[in-house]
Design a protein around this nucleic acid. Structure first.
Lengths: 249, 249
DNA sequence: CTCCATAACTTGTAATGACATGTCACAATT
DNA sequence: AATTGTGACATGTCATTACAAGTTATGGAG
């Protein structure tokens, strides 16, 4: 018999991900203290009655998530807790903020259907004359305006989005949960600029104030460009935070 | 006999990483075209005479690197080539720029040894009164000033660094290659601000110009904070680019 | 012709076994 | 006392086997 009977075995989620979550829990609740050694692979094998492959898959995920690190020949250790744990993953604005306990909502400024034009067309890979939807939203954090988001999506999606509750729901989550489009990756450019008059008025800052401008092109899992955004954040109220890894490939 | 004889077998690098690099090469040189299906796992097993575990490890690396994506039940596909491929990894400035064919050098403005103080001490996890090294450099891209870098490192490292060729070599690469410190991850915050007078003079821009301010704390592989930097980039000449993934954990 | 079961693929998960390699402590040797 | 093995234990790599689960084409039943 290949598969051993196991208390966890009848569950629908894979064994390694269950173990990963159990270990994650123990790290977060302090059962395994930062910078302390985790149980060795062979101990975990005995503890969970699984094979080494399964244990290694769980630990590998945790390592890639930045919760533990391994030293060849010594063991696996809990990372020091990081303020930014997990950031550096593609998240919508509300998604990221609500995770941190902030209250957000979005005010829809305008929804227009217009020709893609050269720039947007190139990004979304549609013809210049093809129609796309432009969605402008003002985003509020704790009731203060913090950013202007200009979103371009193909017309078909834009028309569906127009009927959604865009004030409270994240576009990313609508696309994924309601439309079944699985988002894969995004390319971003971040730069600094000065607020011109119309932008300053919307963000309730002085003209010439510093603004963080983020251009983001989001792709579906299979590489289709889906959502092209220009985000203008108040420089005095927002920092973009991320955690990055030094690659080992 | 467990291990099959294999043409690749006597090499010092692991099999899966050799196969990964071969496949990466074939993707980059167009042998496998974007959005086309890769050879299936069983075909790769036959082609390289290795086990499925090895093939999957190679493909998994490529997937995490964003070069391919998999669809359960269908196959593995080549991703569309991305302008930003691989960015989102921790790189030094020169490291990133020279990869793109730009010429850079750094002018050392000052090197001081001083007390850490509250902020820097907290980041580098040393006592407030402990001595650290502050290194100020003006970085040039194609002979135009593009950023001011203020770097804080523990005194012991700062004293060694002071003797290095900081004009042309990347600090990250010195730390890794010469000092054997393996860098793991970094936390960054990016914000927009206005150039004050001294900064404007250094960057040769007008006072009040937009500046991208990046605060970056870099850790060694085992989580020790090692290098705390404030980077001030000319807003008109620099965009921070990265590619991020939507997490699947 | 339509519908549906099925076979033949694909990738995903998991167990078991083996050997390689890095680390460290302790004992034996010099 | 300093050095050098050597063994115990950690993670790293790899092979083999088995079954689960998603996808697609095909062929037979209605």
């Amino acid at each position: 018999m290949a598969k051993t009977d196991n208390v966890l075995a009848l569950s629908p989620t894979p064994l390694y991900s269950q173990i990963r979550e159990i270990l994650r829990q123990r790290i977060l609740d302090g059962t395994y203290q930062p910078h302390q050694q985790m149980p060795s692979e062979s101990e975990l094998i005995k503890a969970f009655s699984v094979s080494r492959i399964t244990v290694r898959q769980a630990l590998g995920d945790l390592q890639r998530a930045g919760l533990v690190f391994k030293i060849h020949g010594k063991g696996t250790y809990v990372s020091k807790p990081k303020a930014f744990q997990n950031i550096g993953q593609l998240q919508g604005f509300g998604e990221a903020m609500s995770r941190m306990g902030y209250e957000t909502f979005s005010q829809v400024v305008s929804i227009k259907t217009l020709a893609a034009g050269k720039t947007v067309g190139a990004k979304l890979q549609v013809k210049e004359r093809e129609q796309i939807t432009e969605l402008r939203r003002l985003r509020y954090l704790n009731r203060a305006p913090i950013s202007l988001d200009v979103t371009y999506v193909p017309k078909a999606i834009g028309e569906r989005l127009a009927k959604e509750d865009l004030e409270h729901r994240d576009i990313f989550l609508i696309l994924e949960n309601d439309y079944g489009l699985s988002l894969g990756q995004a390319e971003m450019q971040i730069e600094a600029m000065l607020a011109d008059e119309p932008l300053a008025r919307l963000l309730k800052v002085e003209e010439g104030s510093p603004v963080l401008r983020i251009e983001r092109l989001t792709f579906t899992h299979d590489g289709q460009p889906l959502d092209y955004e220009h985000l203008y954040y108040r420089g005095d109220a927002f920092q973009y935070r991320l955690r990055i890894e030094r690659g080992h490939l």
